Every structure is written in C-alpha cells, then in structure tokens.
Simulated scan of single mutants.
Amino acid sequence: MSEYPVTADELMAFEDGRLGPGEVIDMFQRLIDSGMAWRLQGSYGRTARGLIDAGYCEEAA
C-alpha cells in the first residue's frame, strides 16, 4: 500500500466529477479508514459523514 491511501489524482477526479458512484464510495471508505477524511477540507468530512449515515461507508475501527 502506498503512503497515501488516496492519490491526488483520485481526489482531482472526484472534484471533477469523473468517478462513478462505486469509485466514490471506495475512495471515501479509504479516506475514512486512514483518517484523512477528517483532515482534508471540510466538504470531505461532511461527505464522509453523509456516506456513513446513509450506510454506504463504515466508521473506522
């Protein structure tokens, strides 16, 4: 596994709307698992929380 669970290219693809729904969920699960979701700009944390609350992602262990 790389040092970063999500690459800058993935973040840019998300920002540009180039990821499908499954790719977004996978990326956010990795952001949540690594804790990065809570360290990036606020919209990432809000999106992560929304995906957890909706049952698409799980809280980090």
Rank of each mutant, 00 (worst) to 15 (best):
Y44Q: 05
G55L: 07
A37R: 02
G45A: 14
E10Q: 03
D53W: 07
Y44S: 09
P21L: 08
S34N: 04
I25L: 08
A54H: 11
L40W: 01
A13V: 06
Y4V: 13
V24H: 07
G45D: 08
V6W: 01
V6G: 00
A13Q: 08
M36H: 10
A61K: 10
R39S: 11
C57S: 06
I52S: 03
G55Y: 02
W38S: 10
F28G: 15
A48I: 11
Y4R: 14
R39L: 08
A60I: 00
E23P: 07
G22E: 12
S2F: 09
E15A: 14
M36R: 13
Q41P: 00
F28R: 13
A37I: 07
Q29W: 08
G50V: 07
M12I: 10
G22A: 12
L40K: 01
A48V: 15
A8V: 12
D26A: 15
F14L: 14
D16Q: 11
V6R: 00
A61P: 15
I25S: 10
G22N: 09
Q29F: 09
A8G: 11
G20N: 13
L11H: 08
F14A: 06
V24I: 15
W38G: 05
G45H: 06
L40R: 04
G20T: 14
E58C: 11
D9S: 10
R39A: 11
A13P: 08
R18Y: 01
Y44E: 06
F28T: 14
M1H: 14
D53N: 14
A60K: 04
E10A: 02
A60L: 00
E59G: 09
F14Y: 15
A48F: 15
G42I: 05
P21H: 12
D53C: 06
D33L: 00
R49L: 11
D26H: 06
R49P: 00
A48M: 09
R30P: 08
L40M: 04
F14W: 15
Q29L: 09
A13Y: 07
Y56K: 03
T47V: 06
G35T: 01
Q41C: 00
E15Y: 11
A37M: 05
S43D: 13
A8S: 15
P5R: 10
G20D: 13
D9I: 01
Q41W: 00
R30M: 11
F14N: 02
L51M: 13
E15I: 06
V24R: 05
D26M: 08
L11E: 04
M27F: 14
G45M: 05
E15G: 03
D9E: 15
G55F: 02
E3N: 12
D53G: 07
